[in-house]
Write a protein that binds this DNA or RNA. Structure first.
Length: 296
DNA sequence: AAGGAAGTCAACCGCGTTCAT
DNA sequence: CATGAACGCGGTTGACTTCCT
């Protein structure tokens, strides 16, 4: 089947966005919200394809985007999540508040995969490189520079922490809340979706994200209201949805063998573990278990 | 100082999935 | 059921920057 282009490319602007274009896009989204990307450029007075607008907003203009250096904790988490999830950049990004999939993908391709290679690891499998691929024949960074300002190799940081007598821990961020749209509603109905605030591991918070913008609970995915009451919103997106539903539930079978109760129990255990250690998790196996549960 | 090599990252592209008609 | 629209994702590109010789 021949696929129609997402928009007519005749007369469209391409390449880097100008400040004026950014301003128009921001103003439009502030006034009308996200979504309806195809018609957005016309309504916003932009000579851009809708896809381009979405990308610009998601990867650059969104107010909650954290720009700048990836922290050591984020660094470690990316590697560990990549080992479990593979190149699922959006899923990895979902666990790093304020980071975009594009940013993490670029960061991985630019630094992390190369660093793993220099450490003798295969960046795809996270296993030691076989003897069939001896170090001298590896394709890695050829030469050059102390990379990005502020970039600090993880091994060095770990050594510094060890030297300081610090425990080696991985900071765990709570799953990132996302817009939740009802199963029964059109994706284009912006009045029936909501955004909640990004939440990190401030476990004791009892404030419900989402606030007054919540739609009828009956329209939400199973488990939402339960976690809303306790102040957490599980990130549910694609197959990661831990409560048998979520943003992209379309087509999901209600016969999913994993019960709500099982998943809820697992999630509660996860929260308890983090609570017990002020937002950190020492036990790699517990982190792995949680990550695997997301893929179940 | 200049030119080329290499790195970075925003943006583009194509495809898969889901929903509406 | 078939088709097209809309969206999101991962891979790739290419302009620009930085470094090396």
């Amino acid at each position: 089947m021949v696929r129609a282009p997402c928009c007519s490319k005749v007369g469209m602007h391409r390449g880097p966005w100008t400040p004026r274009e950014d301003e128009l896009l921001i103003k439009h989204i502030q006034a009308h919200g996200e979504g309806q990307w195809r018609s957005l450029p016309r309504k916003a007075g932009l000579l851009r394809c809708g896809k381009s607008c979405r990308l610009r907003w998601m990867n650059y203009l969104r107010p909650d985007i954290k720009r700048g250096n990836i922290t050591p904790d984020e660094d470690d988490l990316i590697i560990r999540l990549h080992a479990l999830l593979g190149n699922k950049w959006s899923l990895i990004a979902g666990r790093l508040p304020g980071r975009t999939d594009n940013e993490i993908k670029n960061y991985w391709n630019t630094y992390l995969s190369k660093r793993l290679i220099t450490q003798g690891m295969d960046p795809n499998t996270h296993k030691k490189l076989s003897e069939l691929d001896p170090p001298g024949r590896r394709s890695g960074p050829k030469k050059r520079r102390n990379v990005t300002p502020g970039f600090n190799p993880s091994s060095k940081r770990k050594k510094e922490r060890k030297d300081n007598g610090e425990r080696e821990k991985t900071k765990i961020h709570l799953p990132k809340p996302v817009r939740v749209t009802s199963l029964s509603l059109s994706r284009n109905n912006s009045h029936t979706s909501f955004e909640s605030n990004t939440t990190t591991a401030s476990i004791s918070s009892g404030n419900a994200p989402g606030g007054s913008a919540l739609p009828n609970r009956d329209l939400l995915w199973p488990g939402y209201d339960r976690h809303q009451r306790t102040g957490f919103l599980i990130h549910c997106e694609d197959q990661v949805d831990p409560v048998n539903g979520g943003d992209d539930l379309r087509g999901k079978s209600s016969d999913d063998p994993t019960s709500d109760n099982q998943l809820e129990t697992l999630y509660e255990e996860y929260l308890q573990l983090i609570k017990a250690d002020n937002g950190y998790l020492d036990d790699q196996s517990q982190l792995d278990l949680f990550a695997e549960s997301l893929l179940a």
